[in-house]
Design a protein around this nucleic acid. Structure first.
Lengths: 337, 337
DNA sequence: ATTATCTACTAAACCTGTTTAGCATTACTA
DNA sequence: TAGTAATGCTAAACAGGTTTAGTAGATAAT
């Protein structure tokens, strides 16, 4: 195990000061009036012996880590995994690494994770915030850390965020169902105070209200297990025989709903029409295919990174916050009906 | 922005040396004969002011970072995302954080990522290795870093790994198809020199050979896009009208195959039977449901972390390597046929 | 009474970089 | 020809911890 070279080793080998080496390696040679000849000699030698500065030592001194903290609700969820993947790629392209964790929408866990990230001198944060995390995130912002939220935002916290037009999305989807002649359209969602969920509910309610239809809303707890969800949905179907369409507020609910409907032996969209928030390969290949509200995953990731990079590269902290709202696409797959 | 407290601030406030504070905070008070009274006083004060040691400084001195580097093939793939999720949870439970990246099976990219992780003083590595990465991983091991591979292993590299019994899995699946009376069973896989792929191929070949059936193997390039895969599979179906069953070597191929079959208007399992390696919600809900080889995702993650923790906690580096092979489960969903 | 041992701490070195302040030379001005 | 400026480089401080080596005073052993 050959021990790693340090900047002192380089300096000693060349009989110069480590200060000089540091300046050269950080591109400050010109500014510091180091002769071209020496610069060339040092760079050549460094390359030759394969010296790589210890980034921990660098971070300790500079306070920068070139690491971005990514807190998603659940990395095993297709929506978040795909976004995380793209965020990762873009971050690397910008010279940043990603350290991530899943929050499970758990406030206490998220709080600890933020503390950990902070402790690790993370340069910037990308977060899908759980409830009641306002204070922790405000602290980050107050202390000058760039924070970009996505999927949802915190009305009380002034920072950048990237979301989709949830209200219009469910309004539009509900309207689509109404236009197809459905009257008893149910909405199944999580009981949540998070903006994306509230807006999705509002969109549904608005459309129903406009058409003078009676809303039928079921709110389930976020931590309900798949087993329980299945039972719950099956129950729902039994007790709501008149429901002829269901709008699901996210992919997980949609997936469970599909299972329940399948088990109940109902036909889609014959017996019951279905729209899920978030598209899914599953929905495309299901027979017959399921109509879905597709979020622009790549665009979300692109904008998140764009906002974060702007803040990271800003010489002076930008006061103004940017709020980006992207459009979704209603992917109609049951048009034959 | 209140500036962070350092250990010196704590020491000064209490009129003691920072050495003493350090010893107490690292649980070495007894060993260093610090009086119980002082220990209590320091801990009390530290808690009161909320002092948290700077982990970068700590890492710089100790060489430990409490970070695990996770290199998966693609975090947006359901199989890897689910394993990553569990690895993340278990790592946190053990006091480790995860820094991750997707390799895309790209050797050069992986090489750079390993260098980056190393540079970041990652304590241990969990890797799904791409081709030709033997030397880089051997270097890691030679330099004393714990490395656990999973999903596949490198025959030329002596280290711990967790895999599934690929050969038996495809042998068993093929045999299942044979037992159901299929004669023209095709195998669609990636052209790969990776162990898991080779073994899956071998399992298929072995079963076909045993039953004196003619193998029908299609190998596609790993970097083939979804579009191209679809076209390729559609072509395959057209040119192989006699094929009555297909075994797919992984979830992505299975998914694309399903799409192609659907587009070709064929029935499953009436016209053509299907088994996919890796289970998928998709396969369960597809109508009719698709038989699949399910990998024990939780078990894989559990064992990976177990092996890694054993190495991380070992006082002396363990010479012997542990190779864990887990069983898969053939989830039969087309039994009605 | 002297030396050895134990107790309860601590000064200083160390980890490996970056940054500040400054020091010889030589070149240029007044 | 003294004074100033530019050139080319470096010593030392610093970031914030851990670890080594040791010290002063009290107690025990010889």
């Amino acid at each position: 195990m050959k021990k790693k070279l340090s900047i002192v080793d380089i300096a000693n080998s060349l009989n110069i000061s480590k200060t000089t080496v540091s300046f050269i390696l950080n591109g400050r040679a010109q500014e510091k009036r180091i002769s071209d000849e020496l610069v060339k000699r040092v760079l050549q030698y460094v390359k030759e012996v394969g010296y790589k500065p210890n980034s921990l030592a660098k971070s300790l001194r500079t306070g920068k880590s070139n690491i971005i903290g990514l807190l998603v609700q659940d990395i095993s969820n297709h929506f978040f995994a795909t976004i995380a993947r793209r965020i990762e790629d873009l971050a690397y392209q910008n010279g940043y690494k990603i350290i991530y964790s899943s929050t499970d929408n758990d406030t206490q866990k998220t709080r600890e994770l933020i503390a950990m990230f902070r402790d690790r001198h993370v340069d910037g944060y990308i977060i899908t915030p759980p409830d009641n995390i306002e204070e922790d995130i405000s602290d980050l912002i107050k202390d000058g850390f760039p924070v970009v939220l996505f999927d949802r935002y915190l009305p009380k916290v002034a920072t950048d965020y990237v979301v989709v037009d949830n209200l219009f999305s469910t309004f539009n989807a509900t309207q689509y169902l109404i236009d197809k002649g459905h009257k008893n359209i149910a909405f199944i969602t999580y009981s949540s105070i998070q903006t994306q969920m509230i807006e999705r509910l509002e969109g549904y309610e608005k459309a129903m209200h406009q058409s003078k239809l009676k809303p039928n809303i079921t709110e389930v707890d976020f931590h309900t297990t798949v087993q329980e969800l299945l039972k719950l949905m099956t129950n729902f179907l039994e007790k709501n025989k008149d429901v002829d369409a269901i709008l699901f507020a996210n992919n997980h609910l949609g997936k469970c709903g599909l299972k329940a409907i399948r088990k109940a032996g109902k036909n889609i969209p014959g017996d019951i029409a279905l729209i899920a928030f978030d598209d899914y390969e599953l929905f495309e290949l299901y027979t017959p295919a399921v109509t879905a509200i597709a979020q622009p995953i790549d665009e979300i990731a692109d904008n998140v990174i764009k906002l974060l990079m702007e803040r990271l590269n800003a010489a002076v902290p930008e006061e103004k916050n940017q709020h980006i709202t992207l459009a979704t696409e209603l992917i109609i797959r049951d048009s034959s009906n």
